[in-house]
Structure formats: C-alpha cells, structure tokens
Amino acid sequence: MSLRRFVVRRALSVVPVLFGVSVITFGLFHLTPGDPVSQLVALNPDVSAAEEARLRERWGLSGPVWRQYLAWLSNVLVGDFGRELRTGRAVSGILWRRLPETIVLGVFGWAFAIAIAIPAGIYAAVNKGRLGDVAARVLALSGVSIPNFWLGLLLILVLSLYLGLFPVLPPSRLPLYHPETLRYLLLPGVTIGTAAAASVTRVMRTSMAEELNEEYVTAARARGLPERTVVFKHVLRNSLVSVVTLAATLTAGIVAGSVVVESVFNWPGLGSEFVRAIDRREVNVVMAITLVTAVAVVLANLLADVLYAVLDPRIRYD
C-alpha cells in the first residue's frame, strides 16, 4: 500500500471517531442534573413555569435529547456553537478569539519539550551508564514528578517576583505575532512543556538504547559507516517510533494541562475560558471547548499514525 492510500484510509477512519466524540460530549452535559434554566430560575422565584418553558425553547433545551443533539450537531457542523446564555454572544466568536492563544502556547510547549528531550534522550542513550546519562535521568524523573501548577507558581515567584526577569501579568495584551509576545510566552510555555520534555527524554533514551543493541547497528558499523551516521540516520529513525506514540498521548496532556497553566498565568486561551464557563454553567461554551479539545486529541493521534507510516514502512502494510 502506498503511503498516500494509507493516509487517506486512516483519515477516513477518523470520521466515526469524531461522531462518537460529539455524541459523548453532548450526552455527558445532558446527563448532568440541573440545566442552566433551572439554575437561573432558582435565583428568581417570580419566574413562571410558562416563562421557564419559553426560555428552554429559545435555548434549544426542550424536546427529546436526540432531537436536541441533532439540532446542536447540525449547527456545529456549520461552525455555529450556539450563544452564551447570559450575554448572548456567539460561542464561535469566543472560540476564534481564544483558540489561537492556546495553540500558540501548546505549540511553544511542544517545541520546548522536543528541543530539550530528543537531544537529551540521544545523549543519555549513547552515553548509557555514564555521568551524563545519570544526570539526564535524574532531571527527567524530577520533570515527570513536578506538578505543572506548582512549577508555574515557582517560576513566577522566582523569575518574575524575585528576579524581575519576566512580567507577571501582561500590562496590555499584544497581538500574538508581536515579537514581545515571546517574553510572555516563555514561562507558561516552559511550564506546560516540562512534563512532556521529561517523559519524552525517558522514552527516547530507553528506545534508543534498545535500538543500539540491534544487529543492524553492528552491521552498519561493520560497513564502516561513521558513528554519526549510525546514530542519527539509522538508530534515530527507528527509535522515534515509540516517541511518536508517546507524543500522541502527551498531546492530550498538554491540552488538558493548558487549563491549569492558563489559569496560573492568566493566559487568555481556551483553558482559562473553560474554567470560567464551568463556573457560570455556560453549557454551550463548555461543550464547544470540550469538543475542540477532543478533536485536537483525535487529530494528534491521526498525525501520529501518519508519522509512524512515514518513519517505518512496515506499518503501511497492516
């Protein structure tokens, strides 16, 4: 099977998964007791039952659940996530404003993680058992063990408050493409990427050390290839397969982690919006963000599968 056919087939298989994701997202919110209307009404004893019903009708909360779902889904498919109940603002507008912030933060976190982890993992594997390896392993273990909200607070405390190197809060928000943004991005990005960097280092080291024992490595050395070629051309590509597996899983962690990190750093992305929306029982916003998150994870897995196939030709033949 050619690579292109593999990718197309794999991409098509995402469709039923996304459908399932939408059902679960919608279902979960409608299983929770107490819809926003009853919450509103509870605060105001003067509202009559007729008014209550009208409100439900207006917000699409009446009728059987399956009909509510279909109505919601058909709107979502054309990019309409409904309105915020209190303000009447379009949820899609909120998404478009918040999503880029979160993407920038996530991508920066990932880039930081990969930039640290791949070289560190390779270094540790090649120098297995020596001092550098031990140091890398200790650091990686600490990185995995530190909770990101704590790391975030610590970074703010030390680097921003004591040393004054970074702004605690942006005085005024700059557009994302502004170079100055990087200064604001650094602390939350590092916070979000540290755990990922640590896990990737560990997996990179283990899988590389394992690959280095393979016979094709001895064979490549027996062909007189320089160690550089052996490690970076032959071994690296084989060891990346397990890193890609991990990366797909970690993407979910980065997306979820952004909820905590964005709150700690007051980063105006989907994560902090999510926390606010939960507080206010903004069902449409919560559903929209949950759906976007789930889609991101599904797409990350799709990307991982494609990367497998690119890295290892044997996978294309399944």
């Binding site: 016979e215 490549a220 050395r221 062909r223 030709p313």
Partner: peptide, 19 residues
C-alpha cells in the same frame, strides 16, 4: 570495514535496517 573487509551476518534480515 565495509571497504576492504565485508561482513555477512547470521540473520541477514536483522542486519538490515528495517526502515
């Protein structure tokens, strides 16, 4: 190695890089 002395291993498939 590889130039003046060639090597053939027992398990040829394992001696080839799969990727």
């Amino acid at each position: 190695r590889g130039d003046e002395v060639g090597t053939v291993f027992q398990d040829a498939r394992a001696a080839l890089n799969p990727v």
